[in-house]
């Protein structure tokens, strides 16, 4: 599903150039659950952003589903993104002014799904996330674990092929964190590819494979058994 080759990304200020990704190559197959680990500043988030087409690489190739996307313009990337990729963040990133239902509904609105179909699909996914009873609440009225379940519901409502999770349990206590990891595992078992950035060895153990980064390069890959 994903194949990147010699990917490079630099951050420049007037006087300093920082290399975030240094000729990084890796691949992820369809249906895999991959964890990316590494210390602060190793380039994990940069990699995730490029994988999620929120950012573009300076050099190298990124093939997504057999399409070279490294030099897509923003509009094309956005289009590809909204049909294929769902995001889960550490800080949930729900829109405060919208209810649970409306937050989950939003991606469907942007992809032009009809109103009736939207209700059906949102209810379906809220049910699955066991958050249906909170459908008319606003994010501030929910606990952290509930908020993250809403965020995951929003990420999967469009039935994306890939979910990118950036420290999904970082803001949660261990019990809620485990719930979220169980949810992601369920999704993976139903066929969704998942790439997750994490600091937590515990969380990483839910994945099939751990990619360890240091200074913008892959230093080790562990296959989980």
């Amino acid at each position: 599903m994903i194949k990147i080759t010699n990917l490079e990304k630099f951050y420049r200020t007037e006087e300093v150039e920082t290399i975030a990704l240094n000729k990084l190559s890796m691949h992820v197959d369809t249906g895999e659950f991959v964890a990316i680990m590494g210390p602060s500043g190793c380039g994990k988030s940069t990699l995730l952003n490029i994988l999620g087409m929120l950012d573009d690489p300076d050099e190298g190739s990124y093939v997504f589903n057999d399409i070279e996307v490294a030099h897509f313009n923003e509009r094309k990337r956005a289009d590809l993104r909204k049909h294929n990729i769902g995001f889960v963040f550490q800080s949930f990133n729900l829109i405060d002014e919208l209810t649970v239902f409306e937050n989950v509904e939003l991606p469907l609105i942007y992809t032009g799904v009809s109103a009736a179909e939207r209700v059906k699909r949102v209810e379906e996914v809220l049910d699955k996330m066991q958050i249906m009873h909170r459908r008319n609440h606003y994010p501030q009225q929910l606990s952290g674990g509930q908020q993250q379940r809403v965020a995951i519901a929003r990420a999967v409502v469009n039935k994306p092929k890939l979910i990118l999770a950036d420290e999904p349990t970082g803001n949660l206590d261990s019990s809620n964190g485990n719930d979220v990891m169980e949810l992601l595992t369920d999704l993976n078992e139903q066929g969704t590819t998942i790439i997750m950035v994490t600091h937590s060895e515990h969380d990483a153990r839910y994945s099939h494979r751990i990619i360890r980064l240091l200074d913008g390069q892959t230093v080790m890959e562990n296959i989980m058994v």
């Binding site: 993104r81 909204k82 990133n93 729900l94 829109i95 939003l106 991606p107 929003r154």
Partner: peptide, 14 residues
């Protein structure tokens, strides 16, 4: 800004 970004990330066009 945060709201705008979220909307963009989950698929809103400009």
């Amino acid at each position: 800004a945060k709201e705008v970004s979220i909307r963009k990330i989950i698929g809103a066009g400009k």
